[in-house]
Design a protein around this nucleic acid. Structure first.
Lengths: 228, 228
DNA sequence: CAGCATAGTTGAACAAAGTTCAATCGCGCC
DNA sequence: GGCGCGATTGAACTTTGTTCAACTATGCTG
């Protein structure tokens, strides 16, 4: 039945796990087959026996990490607590795997992992009292917000890597980029005002606590619709 | 003063405009220096006289398209109408340039175009009555939602191009991908239910009207916070 | 136990794409 | 007419995804 291999042989799971590690540390464009092969202790081309293309690998890795999102129990909590917990867990997952946001913009990730998520989040909004079609859209709204929130950090990882590649000090160049952004912002009254108070460079990214703020606002809006 | 060139010579503006056209039709990974050169009627390497790197070009193109977003007049409308108009205009812009969502996840776009947008959107939420810090977060929430909404379509463009590259019929392969997604969804009760009613393949993307739905919910939530 | 089929690996090699560089071109100016 | 410099060119180098033919080792079958 199960063929037991004595030889040290690769498996798709092993490859996917290693790919996720590389993606986490190097970003979406830091993943390449040769260094992945090295990490696996085999030739880069051995991977192709198990996985069709790099795009496929990204899709598989992308779908795998959705499984890290915790699905709140719906029986013991009200919908809003559940919705908050799930969005927060997804947010945390995206912080661990910033490349997923990017991948979502280019690889059309849809597999069992994402389906598991979608199903549960629909359950939450149906429990809240939304009709099927509205539950769809409510879930989509939260999903899109959480995903969008991950793009800024993803950008930073990607950029740091790209800048650091050509020998130069990555941190310094990133800081430079940020300060150029600040310079641009200086020309606008409201942005300038912010630069005085807050850390200038952080402006391009989302300010602290903005995820919680946004999530609360969205759920408030959804809740209001239920009441109305 | 102004050096007038008789010879047909490239300008950065020309290059950026051509790059935007290519990006629109081919997606972020469809842009390459050689075909851009061809479109400009010059060697690919001539571009490097005017622009440092391809990454820079993407940043410049990305910042340029922000300028297509219309800034509503704040004196003649209430904040909510203005916020809706601006978000809708940005949504439309992203539909014209789906690659911008992707670029935002990898190139840390911040320039005059984006600053112009940020400034105006802060003005809207300050007018609404938010204190400076809250206006920041309110603006960020809407921004992230609109940006996130663009990732699905971007993904589709990117994928279509990638799939169509190797000779195969892009549409057919995309349909196949979608139906495989539908197959996965079949294993989950709530998703299956939707596949019965709606067009199955569209599920992975945002359903129709979900942008308007989400935007309304977010603004409802923000408005409630002002009242409370 | 010999030999064979087959799963799995390897390194060479190709193609696409970003970028560098030395050579050159052509325009305006002395 | 020749010089300088802004701008262009094509060749070439590098990185990276992928293919392919050769090879290896493992389990199976006679």
């Amino acid at each position: 039945m199960l063929a037991v291999m004595s030889r040290d042989t690769l498996t798709a799971d092993q490859i996917i796990r290693a790919a996720i590690e590389l993606l986490d540390s190097e970003g979406l464009d830091g993943l390449n087959m040769r260094s992945l092969g090295k990490r696996l202790g085999s030739a880069a081309t051995a991977i192709y026996w198990h996985i069709k293309t790099k795009d496929d690998l990204v899709r598989l890795a992308g779908d795998a990490v959705w499984n890290e999102v915790e699905l709140p129990d719906l029986d013991s909590t009200n919908w809003r607590t559940a919705a908050t917990a799930m969005a927060t867990s997804m947010h945390a997952m995206l912080a661990r795997h910033p490349w997923l946001g990017q991948a979502f913009g280019s690889h059309l990730l849809y597999g069992p992992g994402k389906a598991r998520l979608d199903d549960h989040s629909l359950a939450i909004y149906e429990k809240a009292g939304f009709a099927a079609a509205d539950a769809d859209q409510a879930a989509g709204t939260v999903f899109v917000f959480v995903l969008g929130s991950a793009l800024g950090p993803a950008s930073q990882v990607s950029l740091t890597r790209r800048l650091g590649k050509n020998g130069a000090d990555a941190e310094r160049l990133l800081a430079e980029t940020m300060s150029r952004a600040a310079e641009v912002a200086m020309e606008f009254p409201r942005l300038r005002e912010r630069l005085d108070t807050a850390a200038a460079a952080d402006y391009a990214m989302a300010p602290d606590g903005s995820f919680e703020f946004g999530l609360r606002a969205i759920l408030d809006g959804l809740e209001a619709r239920l009441a109305g």
